[in-house]
């Protein structure tokens, strides 16, 4: 009984840690994608002109 309790606590700690890790990873991936799309794909003429050379250098569709 005691062993089972210990295991459950360890499992819960692992699960909490894993959930936190996945939440942080999701936030990083979403924010990273947003930045990438804004810099590389936004249709605004101003953004396009500011990022023009970087878009070409990264071989993104530009004009």
């Amino acid at each position: 009984m005691k062993t089972r309790n210990t295991t459950t606590t360890a499992d819960q700690a692992y699960l909490a840690n894993r959930t936190q890790t996945l939440a942080a990873a999701l936030a990083a991936a979403v924010f990273g994608s947003f930045l990438f799309l804004a810099i590389g794909f936004a249709h605004s003429a101003t953004v396009h002109n500011a990022t023009h050379d970087a878009r070409h250098a990264f071989a993104l569709p530009c004009h």
């Binding site: 990083a28 991936a29 990273g32 994608s33 990438f36 804004a38 810099i39 590389g40 970087a54």
Partner: peptide, 18 residues
């Protein structure tokens, strides 16, 4: 261009660390 490159670098690095 430097600003765009740094932002692009941060964007890709966020995907990597994720």
């Amino acid at each position: 261009t430097l600003g765009a490159n740094i932002t692009m670098g941060i964007a890709f690095a966020l995907m990597l660390t994720a």
